[in-house]
Design a binder for these strands. Sequence first.
DNA 1: CGCCTCCAAATCGTATATGATTTCGAGTCT
DNA 2: AGACTCGAAATCATATACGATTTGGAGGCG
Lengths: 238, 238
Amino acid sequence: MSAAPVSPGDGTSASAGSKHEIVYEAIRRRILDGSYGPGHRLVLDRIAREFDVSPVPVREAVRRLEAQGYVDFQRNVGARVATFDEAQFAETTEVLAILEGAATALAAPRMRKSDLTAARRSNARLNALLGDFDPIEFSRENRAFHFVFYDRCPNRQVRALVEQQWAKLDTIRRSSFIYVPGRARSSVAEHEQIIRLVEKGATASAIESATRAHKLHTIQALAAASAARTTRKPPEVR
Amino acid sequence: MSAAPVSPGDGTSASAGSKHEIVYEAIRRRILDGSYGPGHRLVLDRIAREFDVSPVPVREAVRRLEAQGYVDFQRNVGARVATFDEAQFAETTEVLAILEGAATALAAPRMRKSDLTAARRSNARLNALLGDFDPIEFSRENRAFHFVFYDRCPNRQVRALVEQQWAKLDTIRRSSFIYVPGRARSSVAEHEQIIRLVEKGATASAIESATRAHKLHTIQALAAASAARTTRKPPEVR
DNA sequence: CGCCTCCAAATCGTATATGATTTCGAGTCT
DNA sequence: AGACTCGAAATCATATACGATTTGGAGGCG
């Protein structure tokens, strides 16, 4: 189970131990775990005092987060955690569908028996979670499942991008809770199908489209559910 | 012809006019146009003096570049322009193949007649350039060709990623010059094929795989050419 | 009563200053 | 000669200081 719990250092780390790095990691974690929800304002001086550092390293940290799309920054105004609307969520999911499909297909030939076993075990846990449904736990395990595959993807760039996009989605999942009734169950079934395809050495193309479809179903389910609760607006953060 | 010449502000801009922004753009441009080749060392104080600013905004600029993968940064040592080896180049091209395939397929249904005309015109220019071959000009026009499609891709995230990856590749193309003899000609032919597929309303899947294959051919050609010049090592920068 | 003007607090942007770390070479020992 | 030690120069990391800009509201005006 090496699947990164929340995505470790996102790859582009460098200067461990420096104050700017500490602050960067801390803010990033808070964004990802929801302590800093979308729209949350990041006041540099305040953060600096909290971490007992000067504002300079805080600014550097925020710049990095800005460049990665975690926060929006406005000159002379400040930074705030990026806000996602449903459209952006859907778009990012689509990106992930594309990348995951490719990543899984690329990984397939490199999957060992033990990997498939791990995947099945993971999917079994997901199945077990279907009982009293815990969205957070399910999401975590779901991630773990998919990363069994990505870990074997030989293309580092693809892997990095997948992790990045996944992290982005996590930001949102925390706040506005995405939960589509029947989705989880069919998701588990699709997982098993993907495992089988890999197992029997299906073509890359077959594996890719199955994985992509799997993800796209989530968008569709979401869109349907969203259409259902007609008038209700998504929670706006100011 | 709205295809960004070198990719304008990469999307995640924010604070125009600030010194940090000026420096950021300047350094970025230099990396992209090759003034700062891979491995080039970025000494903060020196850059600060050159732009007549303090080192603080320079650091911010560099942090952003770091987060985007343009430069590598080592604590207490400094920043240098990211170095790409051939493997990374291939991996990034593969990413681009995946994304471009998807982007083009997504764009296809939205392409208007005028867009196809523009694409053909662009491809004609590419064809004309086949004579006395100018790699830079060809590369520019090639980019323009593909962006005719991406501009119609409805998924912003995908578009942003494509631009980002393309910029990354540009960094490399400037320095170590990638030129594979017969490739350009077949490239033009493949372009025409893609146009036809879109024109006749082929399935998304058909368009996607054609586009992806088009890009992957470049990797293959490169690999072949690279295998040919056996002993010669790629230019190392220190 | 609502709109506009002006001021002060909050916060950002950048410069300057200083301590810390790395690098690299001169000098020394074996 | 080669390896090691020490130290100065270069450069990074961070703190502090201060001017600049935005924001929100008090008070005045129509």
